[in-house]
Structure formats: structure tokens, C-alpha cells
């Protein structure tokens, strides 16, 4: 593994029972790079992320992590039972051995320093996401893993949140792996896009991908009305067994074709 490579995944397969949810995925995460995972529901995005985090064991293939890799993880949603009395401060304190200064710093870098004394049950969706991000930062992560960080955040807040993530990457010089549905918003702050549908459908630098005519078809034009909806096209289709069947009319690009 090279110096900047923090995680290298090689020909990863994950099965749930008879069902193969991740098929032959290879990728690497590098320091200072933001990698965005996109794909339809049930594409295995969260499964792949959990494998990266070490929460799931691969059925086959290898995941090589840098020795003693510090990972900061921000789960998609954190449900804390309302019977659990918890302030933001106490919540951050369960993360690691962190002093109040560290906590304030982390909250400041997500612009949430005023929340320290509040109950976690009184936070809005966006505030909770910021606090979760602050908690991940407390570990001074080399790799930051974010599962749909913008969930429950309004559209203006989302733009801000993705800018924030890009700033955090600069500040901490960490690798970022995130799942997102909001392609247009993350494009500017992403170094590598991976389109996942159980296997990797296409991947690359966003500029590289966007110079491809099929990119417009795949992701739509930024700012256009299909902001939230994007149509999904592939150079192959799946038969009823889930096997990959190439499409005959596939020609000009690795992202083109029809699903």
C-alpha cells in the first residue's frame, strides 16, 4: 500500500445468506481525498461502508487498513431513547478521552458551539448531524466515514454541510468516505465518485466523469429541476438472478447505455 493509501479494498464480496449484496468491489481511500458513494436504494452502499468500518466481515476478498487507523464515523441516524438524559457535552464525552477544550473546538469546526449545554433530545435534524460530525472529529480521524450526512437537513443547510465537510478535510487532512443522494451538491467537493449497484457501475474523478456525455444523462444538469431525482443508467442490466448481462447497444462510455 502506498503512503497516502489508508484503506485498500480488493475484490470484496459480501453475501447475506444466499443473497450477494456486494459483488467484486475494489477501491482505495487516500489521505486528503473525498470519495462519494452513490447508487439506488438497496445498492449496498451502507453494507460497503460497514465493511470499511469493520462492522461486517467480507464473504471473500480483502480489506487492508493502515495500521491503527483512526476512523471517525457518523451514522446515518442516531436514535437516542428519550428516557436517556443526555446533553451534547455528555454525549461528546462518551466518544473518547476529550477535554472541554477539544469538545468546543470540534463543535466550533462544525459551527455548533452554542449547543454544548443543550439536551440531545431538543436538537433539530441539522443540529444533530453537526453534533455527530463533531463527535467523529473528536477522535482526530485519519478517515472520516459519513453515512448520508445531509439526511434531514434542508437544502440550504445541505450546501453548507458539504462545504463544511470539504473544509474539515483540508483542516484534518483526512480521507472522507461518504454516502450521498445529493449528487449535484457533493460534486464540487468530491475527488472520486463511485456509483454502486451491488458492484461498481462506474467511478472516477467528477470532472473526468462530467466531461463524458453520458454524465449529463446519468446525473442531470446541476441546478435543473430534477435535482432530487436522478435517472440511473448502466452499460448492463441484471437478469432475475441478479447476474450482470451486458447490453448490446452499449458503445461510447463506461457509464452509458440503458437499464
Amino acid at each position: 500500500m502506498s503512503q497516502t493509501e489508508l484503506i485498500k479494498i480488493d475484490q470484496l464480496n459480501i453475501n447475506f445468506g444466499e443473497n450477494r449484496v456486494i459483488s467484486d468491489v475494489s477501491l482505495s481511500l487516500k489521505r486528503g481525498e473525498i470519495t462519494t458513494l452513490i447508487g439506488p436504494n438497496g445498492a449496498g452502499k451502507t453494507t460497503l461502508v460497514k465493511a470499511v468500518l469493520g462492522l461486517l466481515n467480507p464473504s471473500s476478498g480483502t480489506i487492508t487498513r493502515n495500521e491503527a487507523l483512526r476512523i471517525g464515523y457518523m451514522p446515518q441516524k442516531l436514535h437516542i431513547d428519550t428516557t436517556f438524559p443526555l446533553t451534547v457535552e455528555r454525549f461528546l464525552k462518551t466518544a473518547a478521552f476529550s477535554g472541554t477544550d477539544d469538545q468546543l473546538d470540534a463543535l466550533r469546526s462544525v459551527k455548533a458551539e452554542t449547543l454544548l449545554k443543550q439536551s440531545v433530545h431538543s436538537l433539530s435534524g441539522g443540529e444533530m448531524q453537526r453534533v455527530l460530525l463533531a463527535r467523529a472529529l473528536l477522535r482526530k480521524p485519519e478517515l472520516l466515514v459519513l453515512d448520508e450526512p445531509a439526511q434531514g437537513v434542508d437544502i440550504n443547510g445541505q450546501v453548507e454541510l458539504y462545504n463544511l465537510i470539504a473544509r474539515i478535510r483540508d483542516q484534518y487532512n483526512c480521507a472522507v468516505l461518504m454516502i450521498s443522494h445529493d449528487l449535484h451538491l457533493v460534486m464540487a467537493a468530491t475527488d472520486q465518485v463511485i456509483c454502486l449497484n451491488r458492484h461498481i457501475c462506474c467511478s472516477g474523478h467528477p470532472e473526468q466523469v462530467s466531461s463524458d456525455p453520458s454524465y449529463i444523462e446519468l446525473f442531470g444538469v446541476p441546478g435543473s429541476e430534477n435535482l432530487a431525482l436522478y435517472s440511473h443508467h448502466h452499460n448492463h442490466q441484471h437478469n432475475e438472478h441478479g447476474d450482470i448481462v451486458p447490453l448490446a447497444e452499449d458503445q461510447h462510455s463506461n457509464c452509458g447505455g440503458h437499464h
Partner: peptide, 17 residues
């Protein structure tokens, strides 16, 4: 005490940490 609180908040987060 602290690990018990951590798994009560979220088991996956606790495991990653």
C-alpha cells in the same frame, strides 16, 4: 460505565470507536 453508556447510545458507533 463509559463503555456501557457508549453501547447504549449506539452499538455500531461504539464498536467503530
Amino acid at each position: 460505565w463509559n463503555p456501557l453508556l457508549a453501547i447504549t447510545i449506539n452499538e455500531e458507533l461504539a464498536q467503530v470507536e
